[in-house]
Simulated assay, not measured.
Amino acid sequence: MVSLTLALLGVGKNKMPRNPMRQWKRVMQRRLAWHFRGRKRNCYRLSLCPVKKSLRFSTTVRPIRRRNINNLFMNRIAAGCAQHGLQYSSFMRALYESNIMLNKKMLAQLSIYEPRSFQSLCEFAKKRHTELLQKGLAVAVEPTPSGIITRDMIKKSL
């Protein structure tokens, strides 16, 4: 382990660096600055501010990026469902209730690159939805949980 550490620091076999923490700090700084261009990539002192700024930016933008990607997946799935005459919410509900565990990313990929597979999923969801309608267990007809008062209950009592 010691020889590996010395090799990573770029020090000879028998020599120890004067300040190993300083060397590790510089190595880490270069790793964080690998994607920059020009001298900001190669010079330690010039890379300090841009690396700090990029780390701050990545942490503030992370939830926004995640939300945008999630919306993109939802739009792609909804477009695929619309081609087959199905709504996004009923499609997702049918898959969830049938224990088909495909995440939104995979469903979006299927809707774009595998249209026949996605069409079979849409047909399955339609069939499941019609079965629920025939049984009388559709979303609008489902009984409400106990302790919740809806407008229909108030209208019936009047």
Rank of each mutant, 00 (worst) to 15 (best):
S3R: 08
L6S: 07
L8Q: 06
G10M: 02
G10Q: 01
V11M: 06
K15R: 09
K15A: 11
M16Y: 09
P17G: 02
P17N: 03
P20K: 02
K25V: 01
K25E: 14
Q29H: 10
R31C: 07
F36A: 01
K40H: 09
S47T: 02
L48S: 01
K52W: 11
K52Q: 09
K52F: 12
S54H: 05
R56Y: 06
S58G: 02
T59F: 08
T60R: 14
V61C: 12
R62D: 02
P63E: 03
I64R: 12
I64F: 09
R65E: 03
R67Y: 07
N70S: 15
N71P: 03
M74L: 11
M74R: 14
R76W: 03
R76Q: 15
R76N: 11
I77M: 03
Q83R: 12
H84L: 07
Q87T: 15
Y88L: 13
S90N: 13
F91N: 01
A94N: 01
L95D: 01
I100V: 14
L102Y: 06
M106K: 13
M106I: 10
L107P: 00
A108Y: 00
Q109N: 12
L110H: 07
I112F: 05
Y113S: 13
E114Q: 11
P115S: 00
P115A: 00
P115Y: 01
F118W: 04
L121T: 03
E123C: 10
K126C: 10
K127S: 15
H129E: 11
T130Q: 13
